[in-house]
Nucleic acid binder design. Structure first.
Lengths: 198, 198
DNA sequence: TCGAGAATTCAACAGTCGTGGAACTCTACA
DNA sequence: TGTAGAGTTCCACGACTGTTGAATTCTCGA
């Protein structure tokens, strides 16, 4: 609602929501550093100072925009239910079902991109993805070496997300869901429940 | 050699080499955007304008600093030699031997970090890592679905490198070489030579 | 009806960034 | 010895960054 004039606008303007939406998009596309407050403000058709008024410093806007829609405790029962030799496939389908949905994808993309450059966000990905989400899920399976398994799993999960959803590398990006599940399920199966050693 | 005075220095100063070294380090630690010309110049104890004098715009400095020390044609014969059921392990050992060496690691880290944020570098990782390095290696094996296999392989390679070397996530980062080989070799084996489908 | 406070913008500050030009000094070769 | 050119610095430009303070206009409860 940029009328060029100062002062409050009549009625409900929805600026706050537009800011969050624009921030999610920018963070997803350009990462933390690449997404400037001014660009987000322009997308939301709003003055940069308004963003600061609502959210304070940039870091706070980031955590407000990129809030994780997944709870690790949802995964644990899903993995434990059903035959153990299909654990990897269940995990693959669950993981992909989240990323196929465009809304969480923007948040997750933002996290992933930002984690690579920003040191604080790197700690965040460790904390959120590995400790809070994958950690409990693996722990609930009661297998040996849970910490190592979490990182193995994380390495494949992040690599897959990066190539298929963030960088959009073909032919992986356009491969059908069943193809992707078929390709990655055995890998997840090994990292989750099968013996690791050489 | 910052004497505070202008003009050429006597003797060989090695500025060019120091600039490249500093650039590699900065790009590795902070990615393309995060590594400023000025910071690189400070590390190399040199005026920022000298960097521009040698390498032109920043993009040219990046490709000069981050030059890949691997040739895809070196990998192909290595993968083909030896028993086929150990192909994945040979690949794992080769791949890890490169990253364990600190010099290429800096270059590769820089590429990886930059590829996530900078759009041009994303195309570069696709071109260099996937097309020029993993592509020929997989093609030489004469298996079906080579393009898909390259991206599967790439997803695990990048995820592993990211967690173990770039983000340094424990316990993967400190795990012994044999542990890592043991954990990932079967995955690589599947992506390289074994049937994929569900 | 009045006043507190929410919403919004403008203008500006102090940084940082990449890059270009001009000037200076040394080297290498004719 | 003279001179073209490589190496090097300083300075400045214009653009962009996150953030702050003040001013303005609207809303809502007392």
């Amino acid at each position: 609602m940029r009328t060029g004039k100062t002062g409050r606008r009549p009625g409900r303007s929805g600026s706050r929501e537009r800011i969050l939406e624009a921030a999610r998009q920018r963070f997803a596309d350009h990462g933390y550093d690449g997404a400037s407050i001014r660009a987000i403000a322009a997308d939301a058709d709003v003055d940069p100072a308004l963003i600061h008024h609502y959210f304070g410093p940039k870091q706070r806007l980031f955590v407000a925009a990129v809030e994780l829609p997944i709870d690790g405790r949802d995964i644990a029962p899903l993995l434990s239910s059903g035959p153990r030799e299909e654990t990897g496939e269940r995990f693959a389908r669950f993981f992909l079902s989240i990323w196929e949905d465009p809304r969480p994808r923007a948040s997750l993309s933002g996290m992933l991109r930002s984690a690579i450059t920003d040191a604080g966000a790197a700690a965040m990905i460790r904390e959120l993805l590995l400790v809070r989400i994958l950690g409990p899920a693996v722990a609930a399976l009661g297998v040996g070496d849970p910490e190592l398994r979490v990182t193995l799993l994380g390495s494949q999960v992040i690599g897959l997300a990066l190539l298929r959803y963030v960088l959009v590398v073909e032919p992986l990006a356009s491969a059908s869901l069943d193809t992707v599940v078929g390709a990655f399920a055995p890998t997840f199966q090994r990292y989750l429940v099968e013996p690791l050693g050489p």
